[in-house]
């Protein structure tokens, strides 16, 4: 079956005074319709840039993006306008992503007005319906964002993303600014909506327990590259890439079974993404690093059913 979203060798570089910043480098991903791809990695690994490049919010430096089989890497202005209806984004920070001078109703109506979907009473009803869908009381329609708590604001972000009935939503850390009890409410909402509307998600997060909960497949990113990709059960049971193993090891479980001293914690920090050296980008922190790791770029290769890894040692 044709994948719903597909990227081939997707690249996004930024020019900086000290050189090319490889934010996203050679990423090949596929997302099937109605599923969730979780993208995990630490800050600066390019996960948000990847999401934005797929949505054409940032122009790609190289590679292709396919949406339902159509190449949308460099769409015409008209086509892009139409595409925006199909693909939406929910941003990380519900405090910064809502216009402070617009009321709740105005924020949710805006996409509908821009696309001339409905007007008058029909518009009013559509917005009220959207507010019901995400669980915002209708009496709050004239509130401004600053009058609401983080959880409610994020619900508005969700309502705005849903307004045009998109097929694909990039969720960029939608719960990381929220408290755990509220985080659970929003995660449940997103999962219910996916079931009801057969949405496809790309869920970007640094929180491994959240990604495990919501995803079908998981892609692990490190310094702009996708280093491992597998169905979630497989990834958590059988992580192959040393970085994935390190990430899983660093999780602090809320139980007393293992102590901090017993954990094997990875040393060092993420190196610079500016003009990276050839070879494995994780090599400087990797305890298995061999000479071969430093010479050539290492590509994702299948090492099990649907399990891809970019590591010489794991591929052997």
């Amino acid at each position: 079956m044709e994948p719903f979203i597909k990227t081939v060798g997707l690249k996004k570089y930024f020019k900086t005074p000290s050189g090319q910043l490889h934010a996203v480098d050679n990423v090949n991903l596929e997302i099937a319709r109605g599923t969730t791809l979780g993208v995990v990695g630490e800050s600066g690994c390019g996960k948000s840039t990847l999401g934005r490049t797929i949505l054409n919010l940032l122009p790609a430096t190289g590679g292709q993006i396919y949406f339902e089989g159509e190449d949308i890497t460099k769409p015409s202005k008209k086509r892009l306008f139409a595409l925006r209806k199909e693909m939406q984004i929910i941003f990380q920070d519900p405090y910064a992503s809502l216009d402070p001078r617009m009321s709740i109703r105005e924020i949710i109506s805006e996409p509908l007005i821009v696309y001339k979907e409905v007007k008058g009473q029909a518009l009013y009803d559509r917005v009220s319906e959207l507010m019901d869908t995400v669980g915002i009381a209708r009496r709050m329609e004239n509130y401004f964002p600053h009058e609401l708590d983080g959880g409610r604001r994020q619900r508005i972000g969700v309502a705005r993303a849903l307004a045009l009935n998109p097929k694909f939503i990039v969720c960029d850390e939608p719960v990381s600014a929220l408290d755990v009890s509220i985080q659970a409410q929003i995660l449940n909402l997103l999962m219910d909506l996916q079931k009801e509307r057969k949405l496809t998600y790309m869920f970007i997060t640094h929180d491994l327990s959240v990604v495990k909960h919501i995803s079908d497949e998981i892609a692990v990113m490190y310094l702009g590259e996708c280093v491992e990709k597998a169905p979630k059960e497989e990834l958590f049971k059988n992580p192959k890439h040393p970085y994935t193993q390190a990430l899983l090891n660093a999780i602090l479980e809320a139980d007393l079974k293992t102590s901090l001293a017993e954990k094997s914690i990875i040393e060092g920090e993420v190196t610079s993404p500016i003009n990276p050296k050839p070879g494995c980008r994780f090599a400087s922190r990797c305890k298995y690093c061999m000479e071969e790791c430093l010479s050539d770029n290492i590509l994702l290769e299948e090492c099990g059913k649907n399990h891809f890894v970019a590591c010489i040692k794991a591929q052997e």
């Binding site: 755990v180 009890s181 509220i182 985080q183 659970a184 409410q185 995660l187 449940n188 999962m191 491994l208 327990s209 959240v210 495990k212 909960h213 958590f236 999780i251 479980e253 809320a254």
Partner: peptide, 15 residues
């Protein structure tokens, strides 16, 4: 409310 790493839960039970 916490997603559990060790067992699969279909739905979280938020407060």
């Amino acid at each position: 409310s916490l997603p559990n790493m060790n067992q699969d839960t279909e739905r979280l039970q938020p407060i």
